[in-house]
Simulated assay, not measured.
Amino acid sequence: MHLDPRIYAVRKDIADIELADRVFAPHYAAAEALRVIVPSVALRDGPSADARAVSQLAFGEDFAVIDNEGGWAWGYGLHDHYVGYLPFAALGEAAEPDHVVTAAAALVFAAADIKAPVVRTLPVGSRFAATAEGEFFKTADGFVHRRHAAPIADVAADPVAVAEQLIGQPYRWGGRGGDGVDCSGLVQLALAACGIAAPRDSDQQRELGSDIATGEALRRGDLVFFPGHVGLMADAETLVHANAHWMAVVREPLADVVARLSVDHEQPVIARRRILA
């Protein structure tokens, strides 16, 4: 049976025990769930810092470890089941998170004072346990201002507004907000903030929502797919997307994107999907 290796933890030598009824492997292992304890970490396609990044996990996100060898953990992120390798040292035990970073980045102060030293910076989507203390959330590592985070239960209503907060952030292959973001990472982040679970890659995201009929006008929140690319519509004519052309998250006319891609693609737009009712 062929299983997509991006979302099924199967290697020649080992597989997730949850797949024992579908694939043969010399060895099966049960996943051990750990949390990311660094601000962000790249998920790679091999156990090496030189291996290509395929995704990224932020502080407080969960990772299911299937194998751990040579300082590299192999497994998948529990939020999207995306498989890869990351340094085992980036994982550990942490309290169950109940708050999430909603700004492009959140400063963690040593005290509940904006003039206090900054202990670390957490990227958008980072999760942490906290209690309210005045204008701050008190965490195990320091204090995060209320303007930068919110309880996980407080989901946003507009994924485009979430994406627009990241305008200007550099394009980074495999990025999900930690020092950069790629096209599908931006969409995944924006939808997650609104309580909508989305897969990691743009081809997988084409299964979200429903098709928009040919000739029907686009509207805010619609997804437009191109060969190997995806973006969110801010309105009927404007796309918000992370792209390698500008090497940044930008807002630009959809017509400009289509014209640019028409040089190499006979069909620049390959799908239009509506996520929000």
Rank of each mutant, 00 (worst) to 15 (best):
134 G>H: 07
134 G>S: 04
135 E>L: 08
136 F>H: 04
136 F>L: 04
136 F>N: 06
137 F>G: 02
137 F>K: 01
138 K>C: 10
138 K>L: 12
138 K>A: 15
138 K>E: 15
139 T>S: 10
139 T>F: 06
139 T>K: 02
142 G>C: 08
142 G>R: 07
144 V>R: 03
144 V>F: 07
144 V>P: 04
144 V>I: 15
144 V>L: 08
145 H>E: 11
146 R>F: 01
146 R>C: 09
147 R>K: 11
147 R>F: 10
148 H>L: 05
148 H>V: 00
149 A>K: 03
149 A>P: 03
150 A>H: 01
150 A>S: 15
151 P>H: 04
153 A>N: 02
153 A>S: 15
154 D>H: 14
154 D>K: 12
155 V>G: 00
155 V>T: 15
156 A>M: 14
156 A>G: 02
156 A>P: 00
156 A>L: 13
157 A>E: 14
158 D>F: 04
158 D>T: 06
158 D>I: 03
159 P>N: 11
159 P>M: 11
161 A>R: 08
161 A>Y: 01
161 A>K: 13
162 V>P: 04
163 A>W: 10
163 A>V: 06
163 A>S: 11
164 E>S: 03
164 E>W: 01
166 L>R: 14
166 L>K: 06
167 I>A: 11
168 G>P: 06
168 G>M: 08
168 G>D: 10
169 Q>N: 09
169 Q>G: 00
169 Q>V: 15
170 P>G: 10
171 Y>A: 08
171 Y>P: 04
172 R>I: 09
173 W>Y: 13
173 W>M: 13
174 G>M: 11
177 G>Y: 10
177 G>N: 09
177 G>W: 08
178 G>E: 11
178 G>S: 09
179 D>A: 15
179 D>K: 14
179 D>P: 00
179 D>M: 12
180 G>E: 13
180 G>Q: 12
181 V>L: 05
181 V>F: 03
182 D>P: 03
182 D>W: 05
183 C>W: 07
184 S>L: 10
185 G>R: 12
185 G>L: 10
185 G>W: 10
189 L>C: 01
189 L>D: 02
190 A>R: 07
190 A>M: 06
190 A>Q: 07
191 L>W: 02
191 L>I: 03
191 L>P: 04
191 L>H: 02
192 A>H: 10
192 A>L: 12
193 A>K: 11
193 A>G: 00
193 A>Q: 15
193 A>D: 14
194 C>W: 04
194 C>V: 06
196 I>D: 03
199 P>A: 05
199 P>I: 07
199 P>Y: 05
201 D>L: 12
201 D>H: 15
202 S>H: 13
202 S>E: 14
202 S>N: 15
203 D>V: 09
204 Q>C: 01
204 Q>N: 11
205 Q>E: 09
206 R>K: 15
207 E>G: 12
207 E>H: 12
207 E>W: 04
208 L>I: 08
209 G>P: 10
210 S>W: 02
210 S>I: 13
210 S>T: 15
211 D>H: 09
212 I>R: 08
212 I>F: 07
213 A>F: 01
214 T>Y: 01
214 T>P: 01
214 T>C: 00
215 G>L: 05
216 E>D: 14
216 E>Y: 00
216 E>H: 06
